[in-house]
Write a protein that binds this DNA or RNA. Structure first.
Lengths: 140, 140
DNA sequence: TTAATAACCTACTAGCCCGATAGGGTATTA
DNA sequence: TAATACCCTATCGGGCTAGTAGGTTATTAA
């Protein structure tokens, strides 16, 4: 299950991406438009800034803005930062690998090979989609 | 993330599937072989029986056995019973649909269309794999 | 008939994480 | 200099996961 944090984060990024021009967008505006708790959203945007997706400007007229072009932002990157591993099991995760304490061998594990297939198909979809694709969808 | 319950359930089913003949397998034997807490496994197998995947026989020489052929058991069905929805968001779930309380419209939601793609690719993989595929993997 | 076996059932719990909320501090701008 | 908006820390209720505990019921072999 996708956490609300990730869901809100993606929505916020898409909202910022579809803004005309590059002027900063305030947290309050995003929160209002997307029906998100403002305080919760603040912490999410902060994290996205620290991860290098967003830039911030303080004071009046401040807000958050995209650092890279929407076309350059793959959804795999966004989800890995907000949600963590994309794989359904740590033992098949590329970026958050962890050995199972039960299985003696990964080669003979029935779950392992299945989850690798799931991971790869998911990675393909999320790797093909960029923020630009989402922002366009939202405008139609 | 896949819960341990689902993981254990799949492993147990695969273990039963690869047994020679059709004689019942005891919970204790599966628990020992797969390093699973026996009591926890009991509750999982019970659920799999109630869902129609397994049959049970009480008393000495009893245990659990598959009701259908491994080739007929799709992994989508197993995971839906043990884990619940396959979709990452309730609003794109086929079997456990639930409307988001935030989004005003699903058509314009940026997350929605992305998650439909993820769901479909995952469904494809899990629909193509049956218990027979997993049991074979485990024997190699 | 009895004892052993193994499924079945109910109840409880420690620990973790999610989704916030609260209350400020700090930098920038008009 | 006052307003604005980002930044930071701390806290917390509720729900879920992954068990544990303790017993009941049905079946089989001796």
């Amino acid at each position: 299950m996708l956490s609300k944090k990730t869901k809100y984060g993606i929505k916020a990024l898409a909202f910022i991406a579809k803004q005309p021009g590059k002027k900063p967008v305030q947290t309050s505006e995003i929160a209002r438009s997307e029906n998100i708790s403002q305080k919760f959203l603040e912490s999410i945007l902060l994290e996205l800034r620290k991860s290098g997706f967003l830039g911030a400007k303080k004071g009046k007229g401040g807000g958050y803005y995209l650092i890279k072009e929407p076309e350059e932002i793959k959804m795999t990157a966004v989800i890995r930062v907000l949600e963590g591993p994309i794989a359904m099991v740590p033992c098949v995760s590329l970026n958050y690998y962890e050995k199972c304490d039960d299985c003696p061998s990964e080669e003979t594990c029935s779950v392992h090979s299945l989850m690798i297939q799931v991971r790869d198909s998911t990675l393909k979809v999320l790797g093909e989609n960029t923020l630009a694709d989402l922002a366009v969808k939202e405008q139609e």
